[in-house]
Design a binder for these strands. Structure first.
Lengths: 115, 115
DNA sequence: TGTATAATTCAATTTGTATTGAACTAATAA
DNA sequence: TTATTAGTTCAATACAAATTGAATTATACA
């Protein structure tokens, strides 16, 4: 099950509440650095740091504003969003759960002796 | 958006690769502590610790074996699994993304001056 | 009873990473 | 050409949580 690798990277990045909050804000549409600062009360350099981590994980993207190139607009990567949907669905699919009896190497000997 | 809270707790627990690996094993069916140890090569007490965290988050459950009550069987909580499916779907729903222009409090003044 | 096994709990240590503060870069505007 | 604003980068610190090892609990078996 290779969806484990995808989900592992995803959860590691979004497992941080601050980063998830920022991503949650971007899920509602394009925002700039200072908007996020205003909404969260976080230090601007801390936001920069987390945005970088999100961007390196391909979860978001950035463009400089046409109005004023000092401003940078951030938005979620919709292609990645589709992958998230399909991969998490695969990973948490309840059809993966099969009916079985635990057979651990050491315990197994004991069990067999019993029979 | 209250799915944020659900997803936050979920990702915080499964954001740890070791814990996610254990959960991934349980997604394939019931396993006992020593089976997980055999499959992962992790210390038995470390597995115990992570299983406890997973259980406290209602992600898994445990029962003592009827064959030998020293053995404890672990399995994923299928009710929680359904919640995970619906809440993550909500959270990552691309319909949440609305078309907007960033309007940060400080930048906004500048923008208005320009017009 | 006393010993072996399965698993947990506790305390100590290590490690990874979030956060903070200061310095730096890029673009605009007086 | 200097000052201002927006944002990033870097180094240092703080903190939370993972890991390790030793002690403890619970059950089984001889």
């Amino acid at each position: 099950m290779e969806s484990y690798e995808f989900v592992k990277d995803l959860f590691q990045v979004l497992g941080n509440p601050t980063r998830l909050k920022i991503f949650d804000i971007l899920m509602t549409g394009v925002h700039c650095n200072c908007e996020i600062a205003d909404m969260t009360g976080l230090a601007i350099n801390l936001i920069s740091h987390h945005l970088k981590v999100l961007q390196e994980a391909d979860l978001i993207q950035s463009v400089r504003s046409e109005k004023d190139a000092r401003w940078i607009y951030y938005s979620v990567n919709e292609e990645t969003l589709r992958s998230i949907q399909t991969e998490t669905e695969k990973f948490f699919d309840n059809n993966r759960i099969i009916n079985r009896e635990p057979v651990c190497p050491p315990c197994n000997k004991k069990t067999n002796q019993k029979e």
